[in-house]
């Protein structure tokens, strides 16, 4: 599904190389996790994949279902089925959460040539999914992420993901800032979405999330590259010993 091949990325404004030949492949139906020290380029990877400005791809490629993502606008990538749950969800004053969600859902449907949802249909679905994630009707009415707590913002990201039904979900530290119960809610939300034709790339610092969302593969990222890939046991190893040995091994 997602194929990243020898990706090199530098900042547009500065001469700073962040991704230095990163390769990985997430087949359909699988969950892959990325762990790695702060500053290793995990968020940068997620931004580059979803099309944020400010980065320059100097070498390599990234494709979704065989189609290169790099030439596409962010909204085209979204319509193609890519979704990023942000590490730091953005607050947007003056735009209602519900309006935002409905506009997004219908924009994607329109881009794919599908019929737009009526308000009644949309309301029914959003209420149901919000309830599962324990997002109150009052929060749905508020401006996007305004006054939401850290954990509420993360749950709101998962609500968006559930509504948009993307095929390739990238989650950047969705677990940070979640309390134990919220972690369970979010994981249930994610697990409910798991299917043979949907894949996940889960960026996390903690093994705990991976107890709830069982990954097929764990990648260790350092200094702009994947330095090691393995099964779920790799996450346990990091949890116990930190990155020291793995980094030394890679050197």
């Amino acid at each position: 599904m997602l194929k990243i091949d020898n990706l090199h990325v530098k900042l547009e404004e500065e001469d700073k190389q962040i991704l230095k030949g990163l390769s990985l492949e997430v087949p359909a139906g699988q969950v892959h996790a990325i762990m790695g020290p702060n500053g290793s380029g995990k968020s940068t990877l997620s931004y580059v994949l979803s099309g944020r400005d400010g980065y320059e791809v100097t070498e390599g490629d990234a494709s979704l279902d065989g189609e290169s993502l790099l030439e596409m606008e962010p909204e085209e990538r979204a319509a193609a089925g890519l979704f990023l749950a942000f590490q730091y969800p953005v607050e947007i004053p003056g735009v209602g959460n519900m309006t935002f969600l409905r506009t997004a859902v219908n924009a994607q449907r329109k881009a794919r040539g599908e019929e737009e949802l009526s308000s009644a249909e949309f309301l029914k679905i959003v209420r149901e999914k919000a309830k599962e994630l324990q997002i109150s009707p009052e929060m749905l009415k508020r401006p996007v992420n305004m006054g939401f707590s850290g954990g509420e913002k993360k749950r709101n990201e998962i609500l968006q993901m559930a509504m948009l039904e993307p095929r390739m979900c990238i989650m950047d530290e969705t677990d940070s800032g979640l309390d134990v119960d919220a972690m369970r809610l979010v994981s249930e939300g994610v697990n409910a979405l798991r299917s043979p034709d949907r894949s996940f790339l889960v960026i996390t610092h903690y093994q705990r999330l991976l107890n709830h969302i069982q990954p097929d593969v764990v990648h260790i990222m350092s200094n702009g590259r994947i330095i090691k890939s393995g099964g779920p046991e790799l996450a346990l190893e990091v949890e116990e010993n930190g990155y020291g040995d793995l980094l030394a091994e890679a050197d």
Binding site: S50, G51, R52, D53, E73, P74, E75, R77, A78, A79, F83, L84, F86, P89, V90, I92, P93, G94, V95, F100, T103, A104, A107, Q108, A111, P143, Q160, L164
Partner: peptide, 25 residues
Amino acid sequence: ALFYFRSRGIPRERAIVFLVLSFLA
């Protein structure tokens, strides 16, 4: 904010309309 909108599939032009309305709110 603009990127946040676009990453959800809302085209740039539409996103700008939202942001302008939000500015005027």
